Computed example of a mutant assay.
Amino acid sequence: MSHTVHRTDVVIVGAGPVGLFAVFECGMLKMRCHVVDALDMVGGQCTALYPEKPIYDIPAHPAIEAADLIDRLAEQAAPFNPTYHLGQQVEKLTRTDEGRWLVETSIGTRIDTQAVIIAAGCGAFGPNRPPLDGLEQYEGTSVFYMVRRKQDFAGKRVVIAGGGDSAVDWTLSLADVAEKVYVVHRRPKFRAAPESVARMDVLVREGKVEMVVPYQLSGLVGENGQLSAVRVATLDGEEKDLPADALLAFFGLSMNLGPIAEWGLNLERSHIGVSLPGCATSAPGVYAIGDIATYPGKLKLILCGFSEAAQAAHAIHPLVHPGEALHFEYSTSKGVPGAE
C-alpha cells in the first residue's frame, strides 16, 4: 500500500456522465476534484455498455451517441484539471479527526478530502450470464454482453438472445452490417418499446432477421474460443443449432452497491436517501447524485443528475471555502478557465 495521501477538496465516486459534470460544477466554484471509478475508463455504463447507442433526452442534442456525450463532458471538465483514479473501487470512507474524510481504494490509493460526492449510478454492475457449459472460454472472443463497435460484427452471423430493449435495439442496429441475425427468445412478446418491436417485425418480413421463438439458449458449439454454432432448445427440449460467429446475450445487469452499503448511509432499497436542496446524505459532508440517489419525486434521468450535481457543488462550497460569500453567477458572466 502506498504511504502517499492525496489531499483535495472533493472526491467524486463514479466517472459516469453525472460524475463528470460534477467536476465542472465544482470547478466553477473553485473546488478541486479527484474522481474514482472501478472501470479503467471514464463514462460508466455509457462507455462500457452502449457507447454507440443514441441518447435522445440531452438538452440541445436531438440525438447524441453515448460515447460522444462522455467525450463532451470530459472536455467540459478538463479546464479544472481533475485527477482520475481509474480501475479501482472505493472500499473505505472514514471520518478524520479534522472533520474531513479519508477515502481508501481497492489498490491502496488514499485521498484526504473535505467532501465526497457519490455518483456511482446503481453501484457495481455486471451482466447476467446464461448458464451454459464452457461459457468462459468464449467470453470476449465470440460471446459478448455489450456492443462497443457495431462494425466488429460486420459480415458475421450473430445470435442475439433476450427480449428487452437492448436485444431489440441491437437487432435493429446490426441487421444492416451482419451477414445474418437470429433473435432467440422464449416467447413471442418482447419487453421493448413498441415502435422498436414494430421495426424489428419489418426486418423479419424482409428476411434480414430470423426469429427463433419460442426457444432458449442450450449450448455452445466451437473450439479455441470461437463459436461455430449456438444450440437452442424449446421448453420441451427439442434442440437445433444456429450457425453463428458471435452470441450477444442481453439478460440484463446484476447491480449491487458493493462497499457503499457499509458506509453507514441512509439506504432505501439499494439507493441512498438524500435531502433537498443539496443532495446531502445522512453523513455530514457526503452527498449522492444521479441514479444512486433517491428522494420524493426522483426521476432517473441524466439531465436530473446534472441538476443534482450543481446542487451538491453549491452545498459543498461553504465547507471548502468557509466564510466566503458565494454570489451566484451565470457561466456566461463568469466564464470558464482557459476559455476565450
Rank of each mutant, 00 (worst) to 15 (best):
G87P: 10
L39I: 14
L217G: 03
S228D: 12
K208S: 09
L217H: 03
E206P: 04
K208Y: 10
R186S: 10
G19H: 10
V116K: 00
G258L: 04
Y295Q: 09
G163I: 00
G140L: 03
K156A: 08
S166R: 12
Q88C: 07
V13M: 03
F250W: 06
D176E: 04
R95N: 00
A233D: 03
P17V: 08
Q137K: 05
A154P: 05
F250D: 02
G323T: 03
C279Y: 08
E239T: 12
T105Y: 14
Y295R: 08
G19N: 10
F328A: 07
D245W: 02
F80G: 05
C304W: 11
A310C: 05
T47R: 03
G43T: 06
M31L: 14
I58L: 09
V230E: 04
I64E: 14
Y145T: 02
E195W: 15
T8M: 00
I12N: 01
A124C: 04
I12K: 02
S307Q: 15
Q311E: 13
V274S: 06
V232A: 07
N128L: 09
M28I: 13
A67D: 13
A288H: 08
P127G: 03
V274D: 13
E52S: 12
R231T: 15
G163R: 01
Q88G: 05
K30R: 11
P54T: 05
G155C: 02
F190Q: 02
Q76I: 04
P188T: 13
S275E: 15
R148I: 13
I316M: 02
R269D: 13
G44W: 15
F153A: 01
R129G: 08
I58F: 13
V13E: 01
A60S: 14
D9N: 02
P243D: 12
V36D: 02
P243Q: 10
T83Q: 05
G264W: 12
V159K: 06
S275G: 15
S142Q: 09
A119P: 05
G222P: 15
I55N: 11
E25N: 02
A161P: 05
E75M: 07
G99R: 08
P214N: 04
D241R: 06
W263Y: 14
V232Y: 05
R129Y: 10
E340D: 10
G108H: 14
E75N: 13
H314M: 12
I272W: 15
A313N: 10
F153Y: 08
P127T: 06
H3M: 04
V181C: 04
D245V: 05
G43S: 03
D112Q: 01
A198R: 13
P322W: 03
Q137I: 13
V336T: 10
C122Y: 11
W263L: 02
A120F: 13
V116Q: 00
P214G: 08
E139M: 05
G123V: 14
V23N: 08
L319F: 01
